[in-house]
């Protein structure tokens, strides 16, 4: 069996997730020894429509994105959504909250007709996604873990427990004790508690755990001086898509 052919695609996003793959400096050579990267939007000039695995970054925000994602879905046997935008719509979904038409007019003014913008959706709103690598940006080691797992034929272990677990494993002082707020108790881990490690509160870029205690989280944020508006802004920053917000979970 030859090496599996992999395409790495960027739809609408900042490109940071693809950059995280390029940032795998110690493992990049091993990675291209293990798989054949035939398409890489951000890194290689050549194009290819012949691949088995698609790693997709970005959310779907234009009609053109819909065409692209449907084509990828028709070719790839395994689809991996990489990063918040691809997994749950990410920051781009703030556009939906603001109003897509309104946002288009605000940004493009009298040229708004040139833009075929639509409500933002994650990749799995259009095609079947087999694995999710969460985060903004994702933990690059987790991207490697997914590739390794697929190569040996097992399911990648992506945590469904809150950031607090990783934060405590790292021996951090809770950021609440240092006068900050954090969504860690309801947010999915896997990032190695990256933000709290730098004494900064978690913003739930990986989405929320399956059974989040949203009421307790609201009470906690209110106790720490956040208004209802502040709380909703925190909840919605990365989690306004997916048909339900944290509030509605």
């Amino acid at each position: 069996m030859g090496k599996p052919k992999v395409g790495i695609f960027g739809i609408t996003g900042c490109g940071g997730c693809q950059l995280e793959i390029l940032n795998l400096e110690d493992q990049l050579l091993d990675l291209i020894n293990a798989v054949d990267i035939v398409h890489f939007t951000e890194a290689i000039t050549e194009f290819s429509d012949d691949y088995e695995v698609a790693l997709i970054e970005g959310s779907i925000t234009t009609e053109h994105d819909v065409e692209r994602i449907e084509k990828i879905g028709s070719i790839a046997k395994i689809v991996v959504a990489v990063g918040s935008c691809a997994v749950n719509g990410g920051l781009n979904c703030l556009k939906n909250l603001y109003g897509t038409e309104k946002a288009n007019a605000l940004v493009y003014g009298d040229k708004k007709e040139w833009i075929d913008t639509i409500d933002v959706k994650p990749v799995d709103a259009y095609i079947q996604v087999d694995h999710y690598v969460r985060g903004c940006p994702p933990n690059r080691l987790e991207i490697v873990d997914v590739v390794r797992s697929l190569l040996v034929g097992r399911n990648p272990e992506i945590p469904n427990y809150p950031v607090c677990i990783e934060c405590k494993r790292n021996g951090n002082t809770c950021v609440y004790e240092l006068g900050k707020t954090c969504l860690g108790p309801i947010s999915r881990a896997g990032c190695n508690s990256r933000c709290p490690n730098s004494v900064s509160g978690c913003e739930a870029c990986r989405g929320v755990i399956d059974d989040p205690n949203v009421n307790a989280q609201k009470d906690l944020l209110a106790e720490h001086g956040l208004s209802v508006k502040d709380i909703m802004e925190q909840f919605n920053l990365y989690n306004a898509c997916k048909g339900k917000t944290i509030e509605q979970t």
């Binding site: 427990y161 607090c164 809770c174 108790p185 309801i186 755990i209 205690n213 307790a216």
Partner: peptide, 8 residues
């Protein structure tokens, strides 16, 4: 009702 199941 109070618990986050956060494991802390």
């Amino acid at each position: 009702e109070k618990c986050y199941s956060c494991g802390s």
